[in-house]
Design a protein around this nucleic acid. Structure first.
Length: 277
DNA sequence: ATATTCCCCTGGAAGC
DNA sequence: TGCTTCCAGGGGAATA
């Protein structure tokens, strides 16, 4: 489900509900997430804490508490947060629920259970958990430049699509936006990264930034399960040029060229054979 | 060291 | 209608 624009949207949606609120109770439901939830430890970790702020790093959300601790959240493929009345029955896929001091519940549901909830202490504001140290730069930061991409492409040999989806190279780009950015840049997803010119790295970096910014602007992309905190769908789907468009005509070449699907690094890959090289 | 493969899990859609 | 197969936004561990 969630790539950078979706995680950013979810994080922004949580801010007005959580910042300044104090946690009064915690519940974890059947099954587990990527790692089992130690409910008693999570309770003593969270109860009585006031949320001082939220941040996003890569596809992770950090909820910062007032005592230099915090929790690291990942939505996996199907995770979602909702804020709703505590009296409302929990959903069948709810995994963790935090009760707030205003009578509302902050609930994490995750059908496929690939998400994660990790306690981090110590964790001070403007710092990220040490577990995230291996991650590459944020794609929307100034340090993600064509020069940077060109440098990491040199001396490696792999498809450019796999490289930009590798969170150790640059974070936040998943399957949808990798496909879309490469289409915009006119670069074939299977092109060996070592054979990308400096100029084309500039173009790709600009395309990545543009597609991510546009997607954030409209709340991300909903294909099936993704929802914002208020339950709304992301509206970027109608702007997709190639993702999920196998057999359809190319927005750039017209009906003369059809979008193709192949598998790259185990992931569905969409491109136009006419204008991506 | 670096780059694919497999696996985690559930449910919806498509095929027969 | 009902059963089977395939596929899905992610990431980490196990292989080549």
């Amino acid at each position: 489900m969630p790539e950078l624009p979706e995680v950013e949207t979810v994080m922004r949606g949580l801010v007005p509900h959580l910042v300044g609120r104090t946690i009064t109770a915690v519940n974890a439901y059947i099954g587990c997430l990527r790692q089992p939830i130690e409910i008693e430890r999570l309770r003593s970790f969270c109860i009585g804490r006031t949320v001082s702020g939220l941040r996003r790093r890569a596809k992770y959300i950090v909820v910062q508490f007032d005592n230099a601790s915090g929790i690291l959240l990942h939505l996996g493929m199907s995770g979602a947060f909702r804020i709703e009345d505590s009296a409302r029955p929990s959903g069948s896929h709810d995994r963790v629920s935090w009760e707030l001091d205003n009578g509302l519940s902050w609930r994490f549901s995750d059908i496929r259970r690939f998400g994660s909830v990790v306690m981090c202490s110590p964790l001070v504001a403007d710092e990220f958990p040490t577990g995230l140290a291996h991650l590459g730069p944020e794609p929307l930061d100034a340090e993600f430049t064509g020069e940077f991409l060109y440098r990491v492409c040199r001396g490696r040999s792999r498809p450019i699509k796999s490289l930009i989806m590798d969170q150790a190279m640059v974070v936040g780009i998943g399957n949808i936006y990798a496909n879309e950015a490469l289409f915009r840049a006119g670069i074939h997803p299977g092109r060996n990264c070592s054979r990308l010119s400096r100029r084309r790295c500039d173009i790709l970096v600009d395309a990545v930034k543009a597609v991510l910014r546009e997607a954030i602007e409209v709340g991300g992309t909903t294909i099936s399960t993704y929802r914002g905190v208020d339950g709304s769908e992301g509206r970027f789907r109608v702007h997709l040029d190639v993702y999920g468009h196998a057999g359809m005509s190319c927005p750039r070449c017209g009906p003369e060229a059809r979008i193709r699907r192949c598998v790259l690094g185990g992931r569905s890959t969409f491109y136009c054979p006419g204008c991506q090289h």
